[in-house]
Simulated assay, not measured.
Amino acid sequence: MSTIIFQDISQVPSPLQINNRSTLSSRDLKILEAFENEPWDLGPPALVDQKFTRLNRDLLFQIVMVENTSKSKLNQVDDIRAKLDPNLQRVDRLKTTRDRVVINQVDIDKDEPTSDSAGMAAYSQSKAVFKLVLQDRKGSLFYAINSSPLPWLQVCMLGSKVIIKKGSIFNRGVFVLQEPNVLFLGGINRAWNENRDGKLCEYLECKLQRDAEDVKLNGSRKRKNP
């Protein structure tokens, strides 16, 4: 199923022309079925009015963007800027960061933090909540958020494919992802991953500007229109 996994699915015709589907593995058949299933209905009712709706079929999506919502957008922008150019790192970064790990013991021979600090970092990552922008084969965009730890979210590439399984919840415009209800397939769109850090930084900066404008206009950080 490389035609699906390693391609932009919005550019792949459906149904696929396959001479003998009986020769496909059970995994490939699952991928093909999820790809050819009718994409999620956009309404009516409108996306934001669909409350706790359960999917009645498997659906295939590709990952367009991944945002760690457990970490402030400003801190993420600072981290990316420092990664791209260490000279841009804020002088007061160590004092103001909310994501630092306290190291209370160091093994001189190993010159690495003890397992306590590593455990704290792992615990923090396991509790992280990610917001994904997903795209279906028709090019429609959707949001998704994890309600349980999904380890692949830490390392997935843009363009990776996922199957959101039948029975998963779609609530007010957002797919709710849990370990048993989502199958990560891998894959990559190389064009989307070029200068990925720069693109993510620009994306977060736009959201920060939008939030600032909302505060100025409405006196609140919460947008009135989802």
Rank of each mutant, 00 (worst) to 15 (best):
M1Y: 02
M1E: 03
T3A: 07
I4S: 09
F6E: 03
F6S: 06
I9N: 06
P13Q: 12
P13T: 14
P13G: 12
S14T: 12
P15K: 03
I18M: 01
N19E: 12
T23V: 04
T23P: 05
L24Q: 05
S25A: 05
R27Q: 03
D28S: 09
L29T: 14
I31V: 15
A34D: 03
E36R: 03
E36F: 05
N37T: 04
D41C: 06
G43N: 13
P44S: 10
A46S: 06
L47T: 02
L47Q: 07
L47C: 09
V48Y: 11
D49K: 05
Q50V: 04
K51Q: 15
K51D: 03
F52H: 02
T53Q: 13
L55G: 02
R57Q: 13
D58T: 02
L60G: 01
Q62R: 01
M65W: 00
M65R: 07
V66D: 04
V66F: 03
E67M: 09
N68P: 12
K73G: 05
I80S: 06
I80A: 01
I80M: 03
I80P: 01
R81A: 00
A82Q: 11
K83T: 08
D85E: 09
N87W: 00
L88V: 00
R90P: 00
V91L: 11
R93W: 14
T97N: 09
T97D: 08
R98Q: 08
R98M: 07
R100T: 02
V101E: 08
V102F: 10
I103P: 06
V106H: 11
I108N: 09
K110L: 15
D111I: 08
T114G: 12
S115D: 15
D116F: 04
A118F: 15
A118Q: 14
G119F: 01
M120F: 08
M120H: 13
A121N: 08
A121Y: 07
A122L: 11
Y123N: 07
S124K: 15
Q125R: 03
Q125A: 15
S126H: 02
L132A: 12
L134W: 06
S140Q: 11
L141R: 12
L141K: 13
Y143T: 15
A144G: 14
S148V: 04
P149L: 01
P151F: 10
W152P: 07
L153D: 05
Q154G: 04
C156W: 00
L158E: 07
L158S: 06
L158Y: 09
L158T: 10
G159N: 05
V162I: 14
I164W: 03
K166E: 12
S168I: 00
R172C: 15
R172F: 10
G173S: 11
G173L: 12
V174A: 12
V176Q: 05
V176A: 01
V176M: 04
Q178L: 08
P180M: 00
P180T: 05
N181M: 13
N181R: 11
L183P: 07
L185S: 03
G186N: 04
G187Q: 01
R190Y: 06
R190I: 04
G198N: 00
K199V: 00
L200A: 13
C201Y: 01
L204M: 14
E205N: 00
E205Q: 10
K207N: 02
R210T: 14
A212L: 15
N218R: 15
K222L: 13
K222Y: 14
R223S: 10
K224L: 13
